[in-house]
Write a protein that binds this DNA or RNA. Structure first.
Length: 807
DNA sequence: GTGGTTCATATTTTT
DNA sequence: TATGAACCAC
């Protein structure tokens, strides 16, 4: 249906196809800017869409408009997204708008899904067969490891992981091995380019590609085969790109090549939300748009429908610290709302405790605010290790939560093992799959036997499975392992036959098989052979894989068996194993739709594109956020990306945004103390309420404890705000530190035990007992006269000098 | 070839 | 702290 053998679209006069006279309900309720974004059809368009400005709405309306006006047929529109989720959402919304299913839009999908489709058609142009397999990062890594070891490189000093990163960054920049610039020659101990070349050769031998190749190969084809490119340039009358600020060089080239014909490319994005630079995204692409596409119309969507004015003001103030922005001014009709809230805590556990309590009271509704459902609340963290404190706390108080992101279903060990079995069934030449399963479950085939198989296969120029057969025949592998291997080979052949039998009744579709919509539920099951669902179960049982986990006594074994059941269930939606494998290699997401009300915990990265009535942003400490590592590695541009991350975080909130930080945090078992994030200083005071943990210090920010005379005047002058004396002292100290050791960063490690350098009479602070003075020192134990709690003996590491408290 | 030990190592992760 | 990989003893 989407074949290029169709008569060209031009054959039907545009005027005949125009249906502009009919009503256009999809335009209802759009504001002027959105309308312009929908109706500016000719030439390049940059839709600069700030957070919460209704960009998806405009994008889908544009697709509807293109079809409604007869400018393009559904299959002549190329719409690219980054995530499957975004693609799905767009499909759904277009379907809704047009009142019919979006099945007629075969070119709406992720960059990768569309590239797979293109590459299957033209695989031979880059030396592949059209049934190539797509490796995931795990396969990729194992392959690289083999090459690294074969090259005699010490993979301790030069981890294969590192090489994977280097190669990935080259692929992101659309650099084939021959095009890697001389400046990069030193990569991976000077061996990077050579190994990259070998890796690509090996992939071709395996008839396999990695994720980066999907784009790279297609770009190569376009660059070297003008006729092929021209065909697609003609075909795609209109191109739409979502999240343009996240495109890398390869994606940019891909788009530019395709848009070279009609030049009707509409890119949607927000330079302020570019947070994937570390993965190869180039903010420069969106900043350069008007240069790259001369005559471009720029439409700004600035009216925000999501957040209160306070939230918008705070977000705008923070992002204003970045340079080289295209610049947008978000505004809203809304007038009311809560200020942002800012609160400091003693340590990470207390932060979690406080947020837990806060969520409970928010559920009930406090301070005149409506109650929030748990689904309306989210906690957005910079790094996933921050999640633990919340999970621990929420488990103990029984607060339902869900972690979004994290290890994905299809990345789990047992799922990948099972998939490897399916892979070796559908494609016996899949060496990586074979390696994965030969000795899983244990069959007595260790390094030596596998070595023999490798050698035999290589000597005969055949895949490993075939090599194994030969090795047995020639008697190279004997004994228990030999028997087991013979059995395995026989089983695979048998299963394969069953799979082929099953397929006769449910044949593969045409070349559009990778369309998600072709993954229709199987309806006919009326024949004597087993269907693929039963087959999958048979494979898992007969191979001994299920038994392996049943006999496993580790606590996560039941969960893994549960996952295997899930996997078999997931097969229901597909016609055969092959279709399923194709789908899974691209759709690695795992939406566990849960009906129960739960607080969502996720990273800031995972939160992009989402919104919540109430948002908690914990861990705003320098070094954690902004991340020290990013700043070390990428300097100012790294800091700017972190700032954009802050902007993304704040703009997720609709009504209530609570930022917090902790003075101390246990990271890798060590206590570290940190200063409040520099981004906190960038929050506009007029839009922020500074809170104090109730009951701990009482009253205002640090007001409960007596303070030195010298600070009293200050405190009176600055009744609130993060201008409290302790705070400013810390700020001052951070500046000093910055001057004395510019490259050292911050995060003094305070090992309080080792640094038991307290003196008699010293004023100290204890988390539970508050302020006091040291009276006796006994090794790592102190006796302290607490001002409120009286004299107590405490362990020194639970105490810190009162100077170290930011409030 | 398997299984227990030790040691090192530690962001963010759309496909 | 806590996970994974690597190593050494069966």
């Amino acid at each position: 249906m989407s074949s290029f053998d169709d008569p060209p679209a031009q054959a039907i006069p545009l005027s005949m196809r125009a249906m502009a006279a009919r009503p256009q309900p999809y335009l209802d309720g759009l504001n002027a800017a959105q309308r312009a974004a929908v109706e500016t059809l000719d030439g390049p368009v940059l839709m600069l869409a700030g957070a919460g400005t209704g960009k998806t709405r405009a994008l889908t309306a544009r697709i509807a408009h293109l079809q409604h006006t007869g400018r393009a047929r559904p299959n002549e529109i190329l719409s690219v997204t980054f995530t499957n989720k975004a693609a799905r959402e767009m499909k759904d919304r277009v379907a809704q708008m047009l009142g019919r299913s979006a099945e007629g839009m075969p070119w709406l999908g992720t960059f990768h899904a569309i590239c797979v489709k293109l590459l299957r058609r033209h695989a031979e142009l880059v030396g592949l067969k059209s049934n190539f397999t797509i490796l995931d990062t795990d396969d990729q890594l194992r392959l690289l490891k083999q090459l690294v070891q074969a090259a005699g490189i010490d993979d301790k000093r030069w981890p294969a992981r590192h090489l994977a990163g280097v190669i990935d960054s080259w692929k992101n920049r659309a650099l084939t091995p021959g095009r890697v610039p001389a400046a990069d020659a030193g990569a991976y101990n000077d061996k990077g380019v050579a190994l990259y070349t070998q890796y690509q050769t090996r992939l071709r031998e395996l008839n396999a590609v990695d994720f980066g190749d999907l784009l790279l190969h297609v770009v190569t084809i376009f660059q070297t085969h003008e006729d092929v490119l021209a065909q697609y340039q003609r075909w795609f009358r209109y191109i739409l790109v979502d999240e343009y600020q996240d495109t890398n060089v390869a994606q940019y080239l891909w788009l530019r090549l395709l848009a070279g014909g009609h030049k009707n490319i509409c890119c949607v994005g927000d330079d302020d939300q570019s947070i994937y630079g570390w993965r190869g995204a180039e903010v420069g692409n969106i900043l350069r748009f008007e240069k790259d596409f001369p005559g471009a119309h720029v439409v700004r969507l600035e009216q925000n429908y999501r957040s209160t004015p306070h939230i918008l003001a705070a977000a705008s103030a923070v992002i204003a610290g970045n340079e080289g922005r295209l610049g947008k001014t978000l505004w809203t009709d809304a007038t009311e709302g809560e200020k942002l809230r800012l609160i400091g805590h003693w340590d990470g556990e207390e932060e979690a405790r406080w947020i837990g309590e806060e969520i409970e009271s928010m559920q009930r509704g406090t301070r005149g605010m409506r109650g929030f459902d748990l689904d309306e609340i989210s906690i957005l963290v910079r790094a996933s290790h921050q999640m633990r404190a919340f999970e621990d706390r929420f488990l103990t108080i029984g607060l339902p939560y869900r972690v979004i992101g994290g290890p994905r279903f299809y990345e789990r060990l047992e799922i990948r093992d099972a998939m490897a079995y399916f892979r070796i069934i559908t494609s016996p030449e899949d060496d990586l799959a074979f390696e994965r399963i030969v000795n899983t479950p244990r069959r007595g085939l260790g390094d030596k036997a596998q070595q023999t198989i490798q050698t035999t296969a290589r000597a005969n120029g055949v895949p490993l499975l075939e090599g194994a057969r030969i090795a047995i025949e020639e008697g190279h592998i004997k004994g228990r392992g030999g028997g087991a291997l013979r059995q395995l080979i026989g089983d695979i052949a048998r299963w394969r036959k069953m799979a082929l039998d099953a397929m006769q009744y449910a044949p593969l579709g045409d070349d559009d098989v990778i369309d998600e919509e072709s993954a229709v539920p199987r309806t006919d099951a009326e024949h004597s052979t087993v269907n693929h669902l039963e087959l999958a179960q048979i494979i898992l049982d007969e191979s001994g894989y299920t038994a392996m986990w049943q006999n496993d006594k580790s606590p996560d074994a039941p969960g893994r068996l549960e996952n295997l059941k899930e996997l078999v269930k997931a097969l229901e939606g597909f016609e055969n194993l092959q279709g399923f494998l194709e789908h899974v290699s691209l759709v690695m997401d795992n939406d566990q739709g849960n009906a129960e009300q739960q607080v969502s915990i996720m990273t800031l990265h995972a939160a992009k594109g989402l919104e919540f009535p109430a948002v908690f942003l914990p861990g705003w400490e320098d070094g954690l956020f902004p991340s020290q590592r990013t700043m070390d590695e990428s300097g100012d541009s790294g800091l700017e990306e972190e700032r954009r991350l802050a902007y993304v975080g704040i703009t997720r909130a609709e009504a209530l945004c609570t930022i917090s930080f902790a003075a101390n945090r246990r990271i890798f078992g060590q206590w570290q103390s940190a200063l409040p994030s520099r981004f906190i200083d960038e929050l506009p005071e007029g839009h922020v309420d500074v809170l104090t943990p109730p009951g701990l210090y009482g009253g205002g920010y640090g007001a409960a404890a007596p303070v030195p005379e010298s600070d009293l005047a200050d405190r009176a002058a600055q009744a609130d705000g993060y201008n409290s004396p302790g705070w400013r002292r810390l700020q001052a100290r951070s500046q000093q530190r910055g001057l004395s050791q510019p490259s050292q960063g911050r995060n003094t490690v305070i090992d309080m035990k080792a640094e038991s350098s307290f003196t008699i009479g010293q004023r100290v602070f204890h988390q539970k007992f508050g302020y006091g003075a040291v009276t006796v020192i006994e090794g790592d134990k102190l006796e302290i006269a607490f001002e409120k709690a009286g004299p107590k003996k405490v362990v020194a590491r639970f105490v810190c000098s009162s100077d170290d408290i930011p409030f």
